[in-house]
């Protein structure tokens, strides 16, 4: 087993690095331990708009990035340690035990009472500390997982989906789990993340390992992948499976009169493809025409609605109007 040295905490870089290793480092088995600063990481086939509160995300500036493996949405911070195994897989499918058992054994040797739960999770006392997912291609497998060491999950609360609208799609849904931090269950409360990482590596590979450093050429190729794919809206948002959005809202105008605004949208590749806006029973074609082709996002829709000046003519606060669309 070779260990790839990486201390970068940029989520875009790290996901590009992982894909680069999976596609190009095909002659051996690799382990990568890595961390991301605050970020939200989606499963490959998820609808981002079904998972996050788009307005809160845009206002927070926290990156939302699509990964190459299956499953649901995960919040990352620098107190969560990720591990990735990249190796051969000749036979078997969805074989999680091959990777989870060594990780659990290493944690147990550190005095952490971790056990396997469901197909791809690790838990302590019924609460999840680790989730994992895989991607396979041409006899190679990438298995990666999270290890919640001392994450601050309170940040997450406002960032997850909270729309009163109805979203319909065939995307892969997230399963919410009750989670706990590993550190809480350790006898040595002074252990830092850096020490946890070093000891885990020792326990995972007790016979030693070869350390691999990336060349300048590797880093350039990873940066290109990061710029062209992982930091692009087209990948992170535009890859979402198509979905429909429906929301019926009653909004008060400046005179205190209730206005009924019913919105239906079809969103394909992250952009509004068609839809209808019905105001007090009458279709408003101007509004929907101005929104068609727009990226489905808070700032983009806000801009189009302001341009339409509908909020002014109808005497509705812009905040109330945009809520009808998100």
């Amino acid at each position: 087993m070779k260990v790839v040295d990486n201390t970068n905490e940029d989520v875009y870089f790290n996901l590009a690095l992982e894909e680069y290793l999976f596609k190009n480092f095909t002659e051996s088995a690799y382990l990568l331990l890595w961390r991301n600063s605050n970020s939200i990481v989606l499963g490959k086939h998820q609808n981002v708009f079904e998972e996050i509160n788009i307005r809160a995300i845009e206002e927070s500036g926290i990156p939302v990035v699509r990964r190459n493996t299956g499953g649901g949405t995960v919040f990352h911070d620098a107190q969560n340690l990720n591990y990735s195994f990249i190796t051969n897989q000749k036979e078997g499918y969805a074989d999680y035990e091959r990777f989870l058992i060594p990780v659990i054994k290493a944690l147990n040797e550190m005095g952490i009472p971790a056990v396997k739960r469901r197909t791809s999770d690790i838990a302590i006392g019924g609460q999840k500390i680790s989730g994992s997912a895989q991607t396979v291609k041409k006899g190679r497998i990438l298995h990666h997982g999270t290890l919640l060491y001392n994450s601050d999950l309170s940040l997450l609360k406002n960032l997850l989906k909270t729309t009163a609208g109805k979203i319909t799609s065939k995307s892969v849904k997230s399963v919410r789990s009750d989670v706990t931090n590993i550190k809480k269950h350790m006898t040595d409360q002074s252990m830092t993340m850096a020490a946890f990482k070093d000891i885990l590596l020792e326990k995972l590979l007790p016979d030693g390992f070869e350390k691999v450093s990336l060349t300048e050429e590797d880093i350039q190729a990873i940066k290109t992948l990061m710029v062209e794919k992982y930091s692009q809206w087209e990948w992170n948002y535009g890859q979402s499976p198509k979905f429909s959005f429906e929301k019926d809202s009653a909004v008060l105008n400046a005179k205190g009169i209730k206005i009924q605004i019913d919105v239906k949208l079809e969103i394909i590749k992250g952009k509004i493809a068609k839809g209808e806006v019905i105001i007090d029973g009458l279709e408003n074609t101007e509004l929907i025409e101005s929104l068609t082709g727009t990226r489905y996002g808070y700032q983009e829709i806000l801009h189009k609605l302001e341009e339409s000046q509908f909020n002014e003519s109808a005497q509705i606060k812009i905040d109330n109007l945009i809520n009808c669309f998100l």
Partner: peptide, 27 residues
């Protein structure tokens, strides 16, 4: 691409030609 139990598998074509008909949609 197939996704099942959080595993993504890319499926490569065994044939060359024109994709004439698709009977199922994503999801």
């Amino acid at each position: 691409e197939i996704e099942t139990e959080k595993v993504v598998s890319e499926v490569e074509s065994m044939e060359s030609g024109v994709l004439e008909e698709i009977f199922f949609e994503a999801g």
